[in-house]
Amino acid sequence: MSRKPMADPENPEWTAGDVARSKGPESLPAHVLAAFPKTAARVRGPQKSETKVPVSIRLDRSVVDYFKAQGPGWQSRINEALAGMIRR
């Protein structure tokens, strides 16, 4: 006894036109997605320089104003000043 495939009127089989109009892989049926191999997950490589750690620190207003007055990059300049203190 052979079975007839079940038809779902709310979810009909896709036509070539449906596939052409699709927006991305999430809109393709599973059997179409299965035909494409999955790409390897992208992994970030090792850091080229020392990584920085986010911290919260309270500084005198005059210190912050001094570094900000020198323009963008004031946080990096504060980091450089502090790093210079530990290299002595």
Rank of each mutant, 00 (worst) to 15 (best):
H31P: 05
L59F: 06
M1H: 15
A34E: 15
N11V: 08
A69N: 13
N11Y: 05
G45M: 07
S49I: 11
W74R: 00
A30S: 10
S76Y: 03
S49M: 12
D18M: 07
A69H: 08
P54T: 02
R44H: 10
Y66N: 09
L82K: 01
P54K: 01
I57E: 08
G73V: 04
G45E: 14
V63C: 04
R58E: 12
E80Y: 05
S27R: 14
Y66M: 05
A69F: 04
D18H: 09
E10Q: 15
A16R: 14
D8L: 07
T15Q: 05
G73P: 01
A41G: 06
R44L: 12
R44F: 09
Y66S: 05
Q75I: 03
A41S: 10
R58C: 08
R88T: 07
I78T: 04
M85F: 05
E26H: 09
K23R: 15
V32N: 06
R61H: 13
S2A: 15
E26F: 11
S27I: 05
R21K: 03
A35D: 13
E50T: 06
K52I: 10
L28M: 06
M85I: 00
S2Q: 14
D8M: 04
P72H: 08
K38F: 06
P29D: 04
T39R: 15
K4S: 11
A20G: 02
V32A: 06
N79L: 04
L82T: 01
R88G: 01
R58Y: 02
T39P: 08
A16K: 12
G84V: 00
E13I: 12
R3D: 14
N11C: 10
K38M: 05
A40T: 15
G17M: 12
R44Q: 09
V43M: 14
S62N: 15
T51C: 07
G71K: 01
G84W: 04
G24K: 02
L33C: 11
E80P: 07
Y66T: 07
A34N: 08
Y66K: 04
E10I: 12
G73Q: 05
G73A: 03
P54I: 03
P9S: 13
V64E: 00
Q47H: 15
V64Q: 00
L82I: 03
S62V: 13
R77V: 00
G73M: 03
G24T: 02
V43I: 10
E80C: 02
N11T: 14
E50Y: 02
S56P: 04
Q75K: 05
T39W: 05
P72D: 13
P54N: 04
A16N: 10
R88F: 06
A81N: 01
A40Y: 10
K48Q: 15
S56E: 05
F67S: 00
K52G: 07
T39N: 11
M6E: 14
R58W: 11
S22E: 01
K52D: 11
F36H: 13
L28C: 06
R77Y: 01
V19D: 02
P72R: 12
M1W: 13
A7T: 14
